[in-house]
Simulated assay, not measured.
Amino acid sequence: MSGTYDVIVVGMGGMGSAACWQLARRGLRVLGLERFDLGHAMGSSHGLNRIIRLAYFEHPSYVPLLRRAYELWREAETLTREQLLFITGSIDGGPEGSHVVEGSLASCREHNLPHEVLTAAETAGRFPGYRLPEDYLAVFQPDGGFVASERAILAHTGLAIGAGATIHAREMVREISPRSGRVVVTTDRASYEAGRVIVSAGGWISDLIPALKGKAVAERQVLGWFQPKVPALFTPERFPVSNVLTDFGHYYQFPTWGIPGFKIGLYHHLHESGHAESLSREPTPRDEEILRAGMSRLFPDANGSTLRLSACLFTNTPDEHFVIDTLPGSPDIIVASPCSGHGFKFASVVGEILADFATDKRSPFDLSLFSFDRLAA
């Protein structure tokens, strides 16, 4: 063996880097393994930032996790003296009765979140960058915003190293094998042993966890940044992050930040799924065309010249909820992905939850929505 640890974390993206920090700060011997460079652009967390929002249309059960996530993002900011969480407010828009609007309202009402329901005209009056169809509604929640995702991974990793963790980049895991109460992790460089292993390998997770083959499927996404025609309308002070469901796609948006352009994406983009290695990272004219289709109709004052296009991966389960659980039959292996394209905002709290799993501490959260067993049906 080349090393023995209390916990090995496979994959140093959003979830893995946070888990390494939480484990190391508890005094455990931790090894983090990353097959690419730290902060690489092959997975799911690059492109500068990711939306965070409390009004969670996907399911009200996520809201308690989000509240803790906000606390932990703020703690990481304090410790690193770097801003990672930016508050702009959030909008969930769509036709009245749509799952985005009704789901957002359900979370707000169940958890007593401050919110307003705006008509399309009211939305445009308050946030002039928006041009929703006249019969749409928008749920505005003031606590939404975005996390600086690339910086957050580096921040968590730095905190983990500062607490004593060992991190290896450019080292690919080939096999994870339970053996007599321990787990052996074999890479292209060495073998390591630990009491517990956390697997947070994103689009490559089914290579390491065969039970997820066909149930954790990578999907190609492309994000675009465009130079606004009216830049003043798309600053963080005047443009809330948003999800807008339309009959021509479900778009998500960010104000200008980092790159001097309006950022937009489309869920399920061109419906291109497959193995993480087979999906192209090179944007195409068709990618730009489909992003402009939404921008021209919903945010016409943002529809200027192209500044950047960037491909990333979502790794989806059939129901698009996460997997956060021990591996059936192998309780010393903890699975922490896929996150189905909406997971990064939770990275801070998932790291804490994974540390609880690895130390046999009962989580205060209801994690039944993320059980492994549900995928067996």
Rank of each mutant, 00 (worst) to 15 (best):
M1I: 14
M1E: 14
Y5P: 11
D6L: 07
I8Y: 07
G11F: 05
M15C: 07
S17T: 13
R26W: 08
R29A: 15
V30H: 08
V30I: 12
D37M: 09
A41K: 13
L48G: 00
I51Q: 07
I51E: 01
A55T: 00
Y56N: 00
Y56F: 13
P60H: 09
P60E: 10
Y62N: 06
Y62P: 05
L65P: 03
L65R: 06
L66M: 15
A69I: 05
E71D: 14
E71W: 01
W73G: 01
E77D: 11
T80A: 07
L84K: 10
E96W: 03
H99V: 10
E102K: 01
E102I: 00
S104K: 00
C108Q: 01
L118Q: 01
Y130E: 02
V139A: 04
F140G: 00
R151C: 03
I161V: 15
G162Y: 01
G164I: 05
A165T: 06
T166A: 10
S177C: 11
I205E: 06
S206W: 00
L208G: 06
L212E: 05
K213A: 13
G214L: 10
K215W: 07
A216G: 08
V217G: 03
L223P: 00
G224Q: 03
F226P: 04
P228S: 10
P236T: 03
E237Q: 15
V241D: 01
V241N: 01
N243E: 04
L245P: 00
L245E: 15
G258K: 09
G258D: 07
I259R: 12
F262C: 13
K263H: 12
G265K: 02
L266W: 05
A276G: 06
T284I: 11
E289D: 13
T306P: 06
A311D: 05
F314Y: 15
N316G: 06
T317Q: 04
P318D: 12
D319P: 08
E320N: 07
S330K: 05
D332G: 09
I333L: 10
I334V: 15
A336T: 04
E352C: 09
A355D: 12
D356P: 10
D360T: 11
R362W: 03
R362G: 05
L367G: 12
S371Q: 11
A376E: 15
